[in-house]
Write a protein that binds this DNA or RNA. Sequence first.
RNA 1: GCGGGCGUGGUGGAAUUGGUAGACACGCCGGCCUUAGGAGCCGGUGGGCGAAAGCCCUUGGGGGUUCAAGUCCCUCCGCCCGCACCA
Length: 813
Amino acid sequence: MSELRYDPSAIEPRWQAVWERERTWEVANEQARGTPRTYVLEMLPYPSGEPHIGHLKVYSVGDAIAHFRRRRGELVLHPMGYDAFGLPAENHAIATGVHPRESTNASIASFQRQFREWGISIDWSRELSTADPSYYRWTQWIFLELLRAGLAERREAAVKWCPNDQTVLANEQVVDGHCERCGALVELRQLEQWFFKITHYAQRLLDDLATIDWPEHVKTMQRNWIGRSEGAEVVFHQPDLAIDYPVFTTRPDTLFGATFFVMAPEHPDVLRLAAGGEREHEVREYVNRSLTASNAERGDADKPKTGVPLGRSVVNPVNGETIPMFVADYVLMEYGTGAIMAVPAHDERDYEFARAFGLEIRRVIDGGELPYSGEGTLTASSPEFDGMPNLEAKRRIIDWLEREGRGKAAVNFRLRDWLVSRQRYWGCPIPVVHCERCGIVPVPADELPVILPDVEDYAPKGRSPLAAAEDWVATTCPACDSPARRETDTMDTFVDSSWYFMRYCDAHNEKAAWDPQILAEWMPVDQYIGGIEHAILHLLYARFFTKALADLGHLSFQEPFAALFTQGMITRDGAKMSKSKGNAVSAQEVVKRYGVDTARTNILFIGPADQDADWSDKGVEGVHRFLSRLWRLAAETAEATDPGDPPEDPQGADLELLRKAHWAIAKVTHDLDGRFAFNTAISAVMELVNACKNLRERADDGTLRFALATAASLVFPFAPHAGADAYDRLTGGRVWEQPWPEPDPRFLERDSYELVCQVNGKVRDRVQAASGLTDDELGALALMQPNVRAHVDGHEIAKVIVIPGRLVNIVVR
RNA sequence: GCGGGCGUGGUGGAAUUGGUAGACACGCCGGCCUUAGGAGCCGGUGGGCGAAAGCCCUUGGGGGUUCAAGUCCCUCCGCCCGCACCA
């Protein structure tokens, strides 16, 4: 018996081979119509080198959910793929000359191998790679659908440029003025680029957050990012050029306090307005300086306000006052109309500017110290509005503006259109051609995919490396047959990952991206799992795609991910793991040393899965001991005892163990059912195994077998190999084919419990109390306890509070 | 600045509705077994006083509500995350 040793290196490959041979985790679309369908999905990995411990965590979480729901009788779709386009592979190619396809395929192979070794229950029949022409053909099709709908467009704009990666970036990919990927300081450039009009969906992206089961903080982040503000558009007239300039303001109630007017340096009329004026030269210089300044320099709110007077003025519509115009870089072209009315008394930034330039500061809202942005009543405005609470004045002034035709209520969003073109090689080609006669012409759908050609030189030169592929670039216009040139920019890789979850549903469809009927059966994803770092980027883009494609009639749902779970990072000594810090924990090493079941279970045990957790080499030993103990008890019991059931009317150790087993079933079920409390679920199984260990000599064989098989069954979602092996040894059955166990209520009810006896809220004694006693009986029982007596005697009893099943509190004076 | 979250033993963490604070695990201490142990087993382990029974203290600090507060309210401190010249 002592020969039995838990050996993951033998157990794990054995069960993996079974699941692979029998394709256990595959589901067919035709299969079992009528059984509830569940789509469990982890965010698809970017294949680079080897998967790390963070990957192991997402898939451990997702796999536990998938296993649990399968055994709850649901048909679970749990596929896998690769986000295979992207810069790291391309940069590697620049450094080594190895084609990105080769290095990416090598990484994919390594990911595939490890996911199999990790025993993740994946339906491999639906595997995809976004860099595969059979996939990106449909990425291109979606692009053309968006183009057709007017949701994709090429236009010139001031865009964020990463000088290191030599490409433009989307707003979402700029963090604190730096490139989110490489950290380089981002510059602004005026360029013609491809955009997706995500801003058309701003309101719906905001509203529909209410319909999805996502963590509140993720929704908050999206709300902030979308940044809806309500206010008014107010028109200021410029008499010299006879132009009306609308501005957006959230404070129309402060309109009477506007003492100047400011335009962004990028505003197209700035130079025209300054022309011929005294400061023309200065304005020109200021504009040039602003345009070349980095995004971060300009964006610094703490730097002193700068600007130049334009030598012109506009008319305030509410009082006919003439106020001076300025150009200043604290006004952004990309928000609102690129021009603002400045109310220095009630806006901190305008206040600073007014102080710097000696401009009038006129209080129009009563309240605190200037600049004052709180609520108050109007003053120094007009007889009509003075004395009115500002919130009411807001509405009334908007009404007045509307009547006069000088403005209207307006809503503004912070969200910008999604810049999707990239001047890089390793991405999905944008399927259009540029024809001198016809302009931009989409490649006809039946000519897709536009295959990404091989090139000699991947190095970025400020334009796409594809531009050098002359044979590929030169083509003919699909519309007029005259010579034309292919678009050489590629798509942002976030485009690839904005729809992959739909392709899984109908992965081998060669006629279409998907069959909407099949899609409707699986989508939306019931449980999505991934890192919080995608709270804005991927999750917002995917939501936009879903809405746009639904509007185009290709989908029958509005949201891609019905529920979301964001798992926390695994840190090492409190710091993010990285190769450069040398603190990375290799998933491979942990797996090699303890087996993957231990690695997976430990990751889920160290803390709540949605929180960051520090990896400790010590902690993993404890989990290994637990699995080892469970397995050994199961193996020994299977050898040493004969199969049989627990006694009909269990007593003593049998009763105790059966209670523990059913308690564990209830606890694990509760913790897994939408609660994602893997850590406490695992600790419940630990308690059960400890009970088996402690009661094995005293309990009946049948009881022990039942308790251990229950432990194996409950641990299976976390440690599938050990769970399957232990279960097999005890029962000869396949645990993954067993329904999830249900607790027997008979064993959940106790006939007695420990009653806590308090005096004045302090615990003074405990006593075994029979279930079902009345409040009076419980109070009397508590009063009989010696240490309770000691604290009650000599005092007057004011009150006795009885919480049946828990405690009695005797209040004395 | 705005928005969100968090603060519990030496450590990770637990505590379902306001009802036994510290489950489970690590570590540590003591013991058993073993030729040996990075194996296994048994016992102890929040702090203080005490021989013991027991008493007092304890969930970042202070205050409050309540018979009862880690949990609710107010306030202060600290840390983390997101957004940030967004008019």
